[in-house]
Simulated scan of single mutants.
Amino acid sequence: MPQSCIALLLAHNTHVLICKHEQFGALVDEVKEMGFDPKKSTFVTAMRALCGKSSRSIWNRNREIYRRSWGWSEDDLVSAFRKNPQCMILSEKKIMQVMDFLVNKMGWSSRLIATCPVVLCFSLEKRIIPRCLVVKVLLMKGLVDEDLSLAYVLLPAENKFLERFVTRYTDQVPQLSSVYDGKLDIKDV
């Protein structure tokens, strides 16, 4: 394990380090068996998600939420966890709000979100909603393709998003900046 991962454990995940030696060894083995590389920070996050009774119960609760409420398969769950272990230790409220918005309001497939689980960790109010509303306006105006990927919309840094979706279309839709800033409802565009 590289020094950066050890530092991450020491700084933010000390509860992982204070478990009994046997438990720690079993946890390391379990995380390795799930396909995590001990040289990457996701290994530490996976250990955090699976360490201790409360973390394990949160992990199991979220597993059931993704399955029952959103139709994720076991493969979806494992894949999402491998890509972003943090998605399995979010609050139930956070999961439900983000999934509801992306699936029911934006129309993205629940299983598509499993392929890019980092979006579940983004702020709904500061990142997801403003960006999605801009995209919705552009879709309504026929300026972008309906097949925009979730990653293309939500992953880029803010300046890249603004360049791709706001600045680029300012001539056709001058109100986009106001929609993005939450000052204008999309119905008023």
Results as ranks from 00 to 15, higher is better:
1 M>G: 12
1 M>A: 10
2 P>C: 05
3 Q>W: 02
5 C>S: 13
5 C>G: 10
7 A>F: 00
7 A>C: 03
11 A>N: 12
12 H>Y: 14
17 L>G: 00
19 C>Q: 15
21 H>A: 07
23 Q>W: 01
23 Q>C: 13
23 Q>G: 15
33 E>G: 11
34 M>R: 12
38 P>T: 02
40 K>H: 07
42 T>L: 04
42 T>Y: 02
46 A>E: 07
46 A>G: 11
46 A>N: 06
47 M>D: 15
47 M>G: 09
47 M>S: 09
49 A>M: 04
49 A>S: 14
51 C>V: 08
53 K>E: 14
57 S>G: 02
57 S>D: 12
63 R>G: 08
66 Y>Q: 09
67 R>S: 06
67 R>Q: 10
67 R>N: 06
67 R>A: 12
67 R>C: 03
68 R>C: 04
68 R>F: 09
69 S>I: 03
76 D>Q: 07
82 R>W: 00
86 Q>I: 08
88 M>I: 00
89 I>F: 07
90 L>R: 00
91 S>N: 09
93 K>G: 09
93 K>Q: 15
94 K>T: 15
100 D>G: 13
100 D>W: 04
105 K>L: 10
106 M>D: 05
110 S>H: 07
116 C>E: 08
119 V>K: 02
119 V>H: 09
120 L>N: 05
122 F>M: 13
123 S>R: 05
124 L>N: 14
128 I>P: 15
128 I>H: 06
132 C>A: 11
133 L>G: 04
135 V>H: 02
148 L>G: 03
153 V>S: 09
157 A>F: 07
160 K>F: 06
161 F>T: 12
164 R>T: 08
166 V>W: 01
167 T>V: 05
170 T>I: 02
170 T>K: 14
172 Q>D: 11
172 Q>E: 14
176 L>G: 00
178 S>G: 09
180 Y>M: 12
180 Y>H: 15
181 D>S: 13
181 D>M: 08
184 L>P: 08
186 I>Y: 11
187 K>T: 08
